[in-house]
Write a protein that binds this DNA or RNA. Structure first.
Length: 503
DNA sequence: AACTAAGTCAACCGCAAATTA
DNA sequence: GTAATTTGCGGTTGACTTAGT
């Protein structure tokens, strides 16, 4: 089917006054402002509503590849390159799928990288894939709908820093188990990885601690995964936005379902990750979604008070629905992925899975340091952009006035307007960050800029950066229960954290 | 300094899937 | 159920930059 205006010929476009070629800063600003006010989607309306002389397709591309928050610019890291090679061996030219595994990267970047690399190697007479890359290049056999597609073997990748893994585990424990500090997971319980020494130290890597006892690791993929998914669900006026179906029956004991402590237990009990199966990881991801992601988890099936609020991860005995490949909890509850075939959601899941793999499971050894780093950089970028936006914007949009407003940039303050969920949210949020880890330097910009009073959260409120686990010791994380969403209060958030190039 | 090849990046095009009316 | 529209993807192109001669 034709894309209508999207495939209008150049002549026709020009005849209609639509511009082509490189974007100007002014056009970028118009588009950014438009998305800020109206959210993403309906790209053809951009021209009509903003006067931007670009076709919708061009707008979408510009936004996705250049303007959206949390894009990671710059060269690919060696680890990213490895991942690309491995993914290409597995997926072929599925650039978008590959991008979903590389946070902050776009399909276009990956495609360009690959084409350049391929050209170079061909010219040099080198094989397309290094010998140590396990070849899985029978793309004809790949079923796009097969979840197992992402069961690719990343065994050639190593955790770059064992300390990091250790800290990620610790950090996760602190976060997920803030009310129960007695639980712990020994790093040695992660069998293979713990036995291997650090292969490479990165002095500048903020995730690499020089003092392993102080839990300085600002993030763990798991933490971030959960929270970012949560954020992504926070289209404050659209509870169906996330589309995640949770078939919890009223008869099921809701106390069994959603307790971060159970995540801990689950991981602890499965600490010999050699037996992990991709489906288990999926289950974990789903559970994270259930825990953090959905407004549809109503108090009726989801008790208030996190200490009582449970969303249990599938246990060892978690089974997989052989037909849908969805996890089934012990009590028979089926965890279902979102209805429909949202590429966005798929990508969210894929990325979240990639993150969880990177941080928690030895079977998939994507460098967790890079994943964390990427996340941090993206959040930092997002934060800075929002700060700039806010400082530069004298006319803050009225939040909530337009149901489509701020689909992308105000996840954190969490739909405080949804009264029914307030208590639940507070419970979740209050259980969130560890208060023992320092904020990263970039986050302290808020203080440098604190002459802007809005940056200072009200006393007793929760500063809801998505940077869970990074609250400084002396400044416990707080969140504003205010019903009005302060756009700046969400500066630390990373709505795009799980956007595969959502774009 | 001028030229050229290679590399990089951004954007466009066409198609198809997904969504909406 | 169908047509129209929107969205997403992958291939390709062209402008610009960089390195080498």
């Amino acid at each position: 089917m034709d894309g209508g205006e999207e495939t209008t010929t150049t002549t026709a476009m020009e005849a209609r006054g639509l511009k082509k070629g490189p974007w100007t800063a002014t056009e970028d600003a118009i588009l950014t402002e438009y998305v800020r006010k109206h959210g993403e989607g309906n790209w053809n309306a951009v021209q009509k509503n903003s006067g931007l002389l670009r076709c919708g397709k061009s707008c979408r591309l510009r936004w996705a590849n250049h303007l959206r928050p949390n894009l990671k610019k710059g060269s690919f890291t060696p680890d990213e390159e490895k991942i690309i090679i491995e993914l290409h061996a597995k997926l072929g030219n599925k650039w978008a799928r590959m991008a979903s595994q590389l946070p902050g990267r776009t399909d276009n970047e990956i495609k360009n990288y690959w084409n350049t690399r391929m050209k170079r190697r061909q010219r040099a007479g080198l094989p397309l894939y290094p010998h140590d890359t396990q070849h899985q290049h029978d793309h004809q056999g790949i079923d796009d709908n097969d979840d197992d597609e992402f069961e690719f073997d990343l065994s050639s990748f190593q955790f770059q820093n064992q300390d990091l893994l250790h800290h990620n585990q610790q950090n996760m424990i602190q976060y997920t188990n803030s009310s129960n500090t007695s639980s712990s997971i020994s790093s040695s319980s992660f069998s293979s990885s713990s036995s291997q020494p650090s292969k490479k130290m990165r002095p500048n890597d903020p995730l690499v601690s020089t003092n392993p006892g102080l839990n300085p690791i600002p993030d763990s993929p798991m933490n971030f995964q959960m929270f970012s998914l949560y954020n992504n669900s926070l289209d404050q006026n659209d509870s169906s936005h996330f589309g995640f179906s949770l078939p919890l029956s009223s008869s099921s004991s809701s106390n069994e379902f959603c307790n971060p402590n159970h995540i801990l237990e689950y991981i602890s009990e499965n600490s010999d990750t050699s037996n992990y199966h991709k489906k288990d990881i999926d289950a974990l991801s789903y559970s994270s979604l259930l825990l953090m992601g959905d407004h549809e988890v109503r108090p009726s099936s989801f008790p208030l008070g996190l200490e009582n609020t449970v969303l249990e991860l599938p246990s060892n005995q978690t089974t997989i629905d052989s037909f849908t490949s969805n996890p089934i909890l012990d009590n028979g509850v089926h965890l279902e992925p979102p209805a429909g075939n949202s590429g966005l959601l798929d990508a969210l899941l894929e990325e979240s899975q990639a993150l969880s793999r990177g941080g928690l499971f030895k079977d998939v050894r994507v460098s967790s340091s890079d994943l964390c780093k990427v996340q941090e950089e993206r959040m930092k970028t997002d934060f800075e952009n929002r700060l700039k936006d806010h400082l530069n914007s004298s006319d803050q949009p009225s939040l909530g006035a337009n149901p489509n407003i701020h689909k992308y940039n105000e996840p954190t303050m969490v739909k405080a307007t949804v009264d029914d969920d307030d208590d639940l949210l507070m419970s979740l949020l209050n259980n969130f960050p560890s208060t023992t880890t320092p904020l990263p330097d970039w986050y302290r910009m808020t203080e440098i800029q604190n002459e802007a009073s809005y940056l200072a959260p009200p006393s007793g409120s929760i500063l809801m950066g998505t940077y869970q686990g990074n609250s400084r010791e002396e400044e416990p994380a707080t969140v504003s229960p205010s019903s009005s969403v302060d756009p700046v209060a969400s500066l630390g958030t990373c709505y795009w954290s799980n956007m595969p190039r959502i774009c």
